[in-house]
């Protein structure tokens, strides 16, 4: 029996806004798909493109990065730097054959539990439509 495709999403959430936002979603009992694996980081400025590329290499179907809204960074300017790096990373991933729909950057504040659930739901839906990532490179090498 074929195993049904379940997209694997790696989510990098900033400690101060988005992680708290996801927490609000939980304490408010808002349902959203369980496809996301959340990794808490101190700030979206912590996101090294290496983390994203490595996630894809290890089999992620999508990578979501969530941080404080621009202007609201706990460290004042971390997400401004992140924004520049990630704006360049997205077309570059597309260029090497990782569809840009698989990589999302969202700004989710600590009170936006509802928005967080919507973001994860729509991202998961989109990844269902895209289907599994072709991992020809990893075949047979484990």
């Amino acid at each position: 029996m074929a195993i049904e495709y379940q997209p694997k999403i790696v989510g990098f959430l900033c400690n101060w806004c988005s992680y708290a936002g996801a927490d609000v979603a939980g304490t408010s009992r808002i349902c959203y798909p369980p496809n996301i694996r959340i990794i808490r980081v101190p700030c979206s400025g912590r996101i090294d493109p290496l983390l994203v590329v490595k996630s894809f290499q290890q089999g992620a179907d999508g990578v979501l990065i969530a941080g404080c809204h621009p202007g609201d960074c706990h460290y004042t300017e971390g997400n401004y730097y992140a924004r520049r790096r990630l704006a360049l990373l997205r077309p570059f991933l597309e260029y090497i054959g990782i569809e840009k729909e698989r990589f999302r950057v969202e700004w989710v504040s600590a009170s936006e539990g509802k928005k967080w659930a919507q973001v994860v739901s729509s991202f998961t839906d989109e990844l269902y439509k895209l289907g599994p990532r072709e991992m020809t490179l990893a075949k047979g090498t484990g």
């Binding site: 590329v53 490595k54 290499q57 360049l88 570059f92 490179l137 990893a138 090498t141």
Partner: peptide
Amino acid sequence: WVGIRIAPEENEVWNTIRAFHLA
């Protein structure tokens, strides 16, 4: 970050990030 085994997907991490570090 990049395993020492001979594997194409490890090469990919190297080549992608090398280029991005020079962006």
